[in-house]
């Protein structure tokens, strides 16, 4: 690039030297010898335009900028990549890929000079790879629903059946997950009886899951009766909360 610029510059100097040389010849001859007959006046020569273009820096990362600077002489018009610009000036550019910039200077007589510069654009290092685009598995607690029971009952109600169908599907698609079903009872009734009732509820949940194709060896059962309640109010809502087969992820 630099070499290219110099070459154009040299061209312009050569043209100027020739002009000076011709003028000197005319002066010496006039002083030493009688003036010759005046030659027919030649058309006044128009100076050739020159222009230089540089970029700083000439190599950038994508997203960064570089400054183009151009200088012209004997020009009446300067264009940068086809767009008119000042005769001398600079401009900041941010190319996203390697780009050649060309400046063309046009003299009064239509002569042109041009220069060009290339800004190399390097791409930034790739960002760290995004986390593997695996769909995060829904958690055990989000996926598994407890089964609720009526007072003194261990029958699977329709709403419990719905919950357990979901649970069975989850367990079948997550064969590495084992579960413990904990039978709970509300605070009414006798603690000893509730321990047995909780056991029966846990067994009912297990049996339903097995009937839906879950391997029985993946399900353990336990009863806590009325101990370890989810709530302790003496309301029907609280009692219902405590009558359930509760899922705990197996060890």
């Amino acid at each position: 690039m630099k070499q290219s610029t110099s070459r154009y510059f040299l061209t312009a100097v050569t043209a100027g030297s020739a002009l000076l040389f011709s003028l000197g010849l005319a002066g010496c001859g006039h002083k030493a010898v009688p003036p010759p007959p005046v030659p027919a006046p030649a058309a006044k020569p128009t100076p050739a335009p020159t222009v230089t273009l540089s970029a700083d820096p000439t190599s950038i990362e994508s997203g960064s900028s570089s400054t183009l600077t151009w200088t012209s002489s004997n020009a009446v018009k300067v264009e940068l990549n086809g767009a008119a610009v000042d005769l001398n000036g600079n401009q900041s550019v941010s190319p996203t890929q390697s780009t050649d910039y060309q400046v063309v200077a046009t003299g009064a007589d239509g002569q042109t000079a041009n220069d060009s510069v290339r800004i190399s654009v390097t791409q930034p290092p790739p960002p760290p790879p995004p986390p593997p685009a695996v769909q995060p598995a829904p958690s055990f607690a989000e996926s598994v629903r407890d089964a609720f029971f009526d007072f003194d009952k261990s029958d699977i109600r329709p709403d419990a059946q719905q919950a357990l169908d979901t649970d069975a599907a989850y367990l079948k698609s997550n064969p590495n997950v084992d579960v413990e079903v904990v039978g709970h009872c509300d605070a009414r009734g006798s603690a000893e009886y509730n321990l047995a009732l909780g056991h029966r509820r846990a067994d009912a949940v297990k049996n339903y899951l097995v009937s839906q194709g879950v391997d029985a060896s993946r399900i353990t059962t336990e009863s806590v009766g009325k101990e370890d309640p989810f709530c302790t109010e003496t309301t029907s809502e609280c009692y219902q909360q405590n009558r359930r087969g509760h899922f705990v992820r197996g060890q």
């Binding site: 009734g189 006798s190 003496t234």
Partner: peptide, 15 residues
């Protein structure tokens, strides 16, 4: 013995 003569399903849970 402990007895809920009505069956024990009421909210009071009294026996």
């Amino acid at each position: 013995f402990a007895w809920v003569r009505t069956g024990g399903g009421e909210d009071s849970g009294a026996s």
